[in-house]
Computed example of a mutant assay.
Amino acid sequence: MTKEYNDRIEELEHMSRYPENIYYRGNLNLLKKRKVSIVGSRKPLSYTNKTTFKLANELAKRDIIIVSGAALGVDAISHKAASPNNTIAVMANGLDIKYPAVNSKLISSIENEGLVLSMYQDTQKPRNYTFVQRNELVVALGEILIVTQADLNSGTLSSINYALKMGKEVYTIPHQIDDSLGTQKLLEKNLIKPIYNLENFVNNFGKIKKSEDEKLSSFLNTFPSYQDALRLYKDKIFQLELEGKIVIENGLVKPI
Rank of each mutant, 00 (worst) to 15 (best):
G244S: 05
S211H: 11
P84F: 10
L145C: 03
L152C: 05
L28W: 11
S37Y: 11
I146V: 13
N153D: 06
Y226K: 15
K207N: 12
A89P: 00
D96T: 05
K105A: 02
G40N: 05
I88E: 11
P174T: 07
N128C: 12
P255I: 12
L198I: 14
G182Q: 04
K80C: 03
P194G: 07
P126Q: 06
I38R: 04
S118T: 07
L240M: 06
D178C: 10
V74M: 11
G206D: 10
D75F: 08
P84G: 13
L230R: 07
E188R: 10
E169W: 00
P174I: 09
G73K: 01
V139H: 08
K215H: 07
L72K: 14
L95D: 05
Y226A: 09
D75V: 05
K207E: 14
F219I: 03
E143K: 13
Q121Y: 14
I9C: 01
I77S: 02
I256W: 11
T130D: 06
G182A: 02
Y5R: 07
Q149N: 00
L191N: 00
Y99V: 04
Q227R: 12
L95Q: 07
S37K: 12
Y99I: 10
E111V: 06
T48M: 12
I77Q: 08
Y233K: 06
R231P: 13
M1V: 09
I107L: 10
A60M: 01
A82F: 03
V138G: 10
S68W: 08
T172H: 04
L230W: 10
I192Q: 15
P100Q: 04
N49A: 13
L216Y: 13
L157Q: 14
N135K: 13
S78L: 10
S225I: 00
Y162A: 15
E243R: 03
D213K: 12
N161W: 03
Q121F: 11
L12P: 08
L181G: 11
L157D: 11
Y129V: 09
G26W: 01
Q239W: 14
K3S: 08
G94M: 11
D179K: 11
K215W: 15
N128T: 15
I65C: 08
L95P: 02
T148Y: 01
L242F: 12
S158Y: 15
F223K: 07
I146M: 10
S217M: 02
I65H: 14
I97P: 00
A76V: 13
